[in-house]
Design a protein around this nucleic acid. Structure first.
Length: 110
DNA sequence: ACGGTGACGCTCA
DNA sequence: TTGAGCGCCACCG
């Protein structure tokens, strides 16, 4: 398991959590957006890796982070649970895909 | 340092 | 439009 860094300094994962926390309710963002926001547009995979081990479970709304193609992607508690949470916030999900994805998509400082 | 793994992203058929 | 392939980066043993 990719337990979060034991380092005190702001590691890659910490940056990911910080960005994810900024996503407002009823909106979603993508792994790629977060990667870009932290200055590493190609670290989308690493972003997912960090969220997977997200130690700030209730603090970081990791369920609001989806794939760039509008798919739910994955979730530690199951993609189904993720879809349910999003639906509660107003983001309809059908068969693992976000409805009106571009509309619900949230971008950082852009 | 190296190889394996993964909640990704883009391109091509 | 959907699926397969390849490349990307960070973390672990």
């Amino acid at each position: 398991m990719k337990s979060f860094s034991t380092n005190i300094s702001k590691s890659f994962s910490e940056l990911v959590y910080a960005k994810t926390k900024l996503v407002p309710r009823g909106r979603v963002t993508t792994y790629g957006q977060i990667a870009k926001a932290i200055g590493k547009p190609k670290s989308s995979r690493a972003v997912g890796n960090a969220l997977n081990c997200n130690p700030y479970a209730p603090v970081v709304p990791c369920h609001r982070v989806v794939r760039s193609d509008g798919k739910i992607g994955g979730f530690a508690y199951g993609a189904k649970a993720k879809a349910g949470l999003l639906a509660k916030e107003g983001v309809k999900v059908i068969d693992g895909k976000i409805m009106d994805f571009p509309k619900k998509l949230f971008k950082f400082g852009k």
